[in-house]
Structures are given as C-alpha cells and as structure tokens.
Design a protein around this nucleic acid. Sequence first.
DNA 1: GGCGCAGGAGAACGATCGTTCATAACCAGA
DNA 2: TCTGGTTATGAACGATCGTTCTCCTGCGCC
Lengths: 205, 205
Amino acid sequence: MNDRSPAPELIAPSTRGNESAILNAALDAFGEQGFNGASMRDIARGARTSLSNLYNYFPSKSELLAELLRRANDEQLARTRHAANAEATTAAERLRAAVKAYVGFVVDHQVAALVAISEIRYLAGKNREHVVEARDQTQAIFEEIVADGVSAGEFTTPYPGDAARNITAMCSAISTWYRPEGRLSKTQLAEEQSRYALALLEARP
Amino acid sequence: MNDRSPAPELIAPSTRGNESAILNAALDAFGEQGFNGASMRDIARGARTSLSNLYNYFPSKSELLAELLRRANDEQLARTRHAANAEATTAAERLRAAVKAYVGFVVDHQVAALVAISEIRYLAGKNREHVVEARDQTQAIFEEIVADGVSAGEFTTPYPGDAARNITAMCSAISTWYRPEGRLSKTQLAEEQSRYALALLEARP
DNA sequence: GGCGCAGGAGAACGATCGTTCATAACCAGA
DNA sequence: TCTGGTTATGAACGATCGTTCTCCTGCGCC
C-alpha cells in the first residue's frame, strides 16, 4: 500500500446480508444529493435491493443517516485520539501527529467526511447528541494539545480554543476540494497541513 | 452604530412589492432547513403571501436560490475587493484589511454566508457558473496578496494558493459557529482572525 | 418433515412536493 | 371612465416522497 492506494473501507462488510451495501449506497446518495435530495428509492437502487427491504435494516431514513454519521465521527475520533496519545516529547510533535491523523481520515473517507459536516444538521434528538459529542471530543483533543503547548512555551497563540477551532475548520474543509489526482498525495497534504497548523499557533522555531 | 448593532440588510427593500420579503423568507427557510428541506409553501408563509404569488417574482425554486447566492457572493466579493484595493504599504496590511472585510461579511450576514457555502451544490448551469466565478474571484484576491507578500519577502509560506485557501476556509467556517452574544464582538473577531491569517503565512515579525 | 424466522419483493397508502391555471383586485395612464 | 399590466389568490395537477402492508422464498433447527 502506498500513498495513492485506496484506503480501508469505512463501512466494512457485515454479517447481515446487505447492510454494508445499503450504508455505502446511502453514503453515496447523501454525498451527491444531500439528505433531503436523496430518496430511499435512490439508496435502494444503489444497493441493488428493493425499497421495502431497506426497512429490514434501518427503521427510517434518519436512522440511516445517523448510523453513517456515527461511524464516520467515531472513526475520526479514534484515529485522532490514537495519534494524540502516541509517544511524543513535545506538544508540537503531538499536534503534527493529530493533524496528520485527522487529515488522513478526511482523505481516506472524503465523502464520509463531507457528509459528516454538511448533513449533521438533519439529525435530531439522541442521534444528534452522540454525533455532536464525538465531534466535540475530537475538537477537545486539539484544544488540549494547543493549551499544553502554550503552557510549555512552545506556542504563543493567545486563545487556544479559537486556534484549535481554526485548525479543525481548515482540515475539515479539505473534504470540499481534495482530488486524489491533484498535486499533493495524501501524505504530502497531511504534512503540509500540519505545517499550517503549527504556523497558525505561532510555534517557536 | 457600534460593534454590536445590526448590519445593513443584504436584501434591501425593493421597488417590487414583495420581492425583498420573499428573498428574506427564502434565506431563512434555506438557512434553517436546507434547499431541499424547505418548501415553497414555507417560504410563502414566511413572506406572508400566497404560494402561487412566489412565481410572479421568481420562475422557480432554483432561481430563488440562485438570486440569493448571487447577492451574497457579489457582496462578499465587493467588500473584499474594496478592502484589498485600499491604500496600504505592505502585503501584510492588505491581507489584514481583506480578512477583516471578509469576516465582516460573514458576521453581518451570517445566514447568507452559511447558505452560500452549504447550498451552492444545489445550483446548476449558468446560475452555478456565476456564483462560482464570484467565489473564485474572492479567492483570487487572497491568493494575489499572499503571492505579493511572498515575493516581497514579507511571508515565507511555500504555497501561496494553499495558504490562501486555508485562510478563506477558516473565515467561512465562522458562519457555522459564530454567536453575536459570544466572547468576541464583530470587530474583535475580525482582528483576531487576521492575526491567525498572518501567522499561518509565517509573516516575518 | 414441519416450524419459525430473517431476508427479500411489489403494491399501495396518505402526505407533500414544485408548478400551473383561472380569476379577481388594484391602479396608473389614456 | 375605460384599459392593460401588475399583484394577488385558492384550487388543482401530476409526480414523488417516506413508510407500511402483504406475501413469498430459503434455510437452519428441533
């Protein structure tokens, strides 16, 4: 596996017959047409099954979206957390690792990352809460690293929370423009983006 | 008028009876429910007129969205361009002015800024082209300032285009979280954001 | 062999969608 | 005062929506 090879699937083949096919079809449909623009019939067609069979797997269209967003945000949180917890001597190193992991998810699962930020507004109730919580926890990882770096004198940015929010905003936006055939490979993009993040924090050279 | 007072309306009262009321109702509806989630009946209700009367002003729902996005992007471009063209001795000063203008638009017309980035995907054909062109021109202003600053040795960032894209991404994302009652006033936020932009460019101190 | 259940299909339900139509009120200019 | 365009309305159209209902198939298990 190299820099340009496909990433592991976000939606792994499941024990239940068509579950992963339905989730992937829903991801494509929501990504192309938005939650309200995509119909259950579109999703059924994409999953090569019947409309009514969708309801043997998910009780409603909203729950289908919720399941997608749960998986996406949980995976992004897990990746970022793992990177942030790795051995590192400085806050700058931890930040670089966290940014690379975050960007790695966005590039590996671009459609999922895009749907996660643009369709979350159509979730409500408990489903929304869980997804928002995962997102906030991911955000908190960056805030904590930045705050640590400021305490240690590595970063001189005055408002760690604001700076961290700008970093995640920059990195999430990658899902809106990245093209695999572009100038930068996944690894190069992640590297470059971590440089912007450190620069934004006014890291001491 | 101070820092917390309301901004001039993006949709000014027009000569045609209900045009501005319809546009404002459409802006609210699209902002709250998205293009496909909002119905023409919702918009008519918001504008306190009848469903069929909407079609005396706009030939279709798509054209209504297009008109909104045209106005929003044109206004943001005009503000940014004006700021970038102002007298300034350094690229850093021009960048600060441009960021403040851009952020100023986002805060003054938060819903319009949010709709402009999240609903542009539902435009097609000529309508889409015009809006994309205005957006690209705004982007180009930042790219040019950054490139100038790099040439002059003010900024040391290696890829002006990428850096500029990160700057506009950060500033556009403000529309997704800003609350007027928050810690920062409009002017303070614009100031702070321009500092992040300069830091990101690795401006010489 | 018969039972039960998960997985699958087509048809249909009521609701809502964007749009159109016929028609009426209003109002400035001849 | 008549007139022609603008603004407005409620009713209706065909299409499509999410969801449900009924029924069928295949298959492991006592």
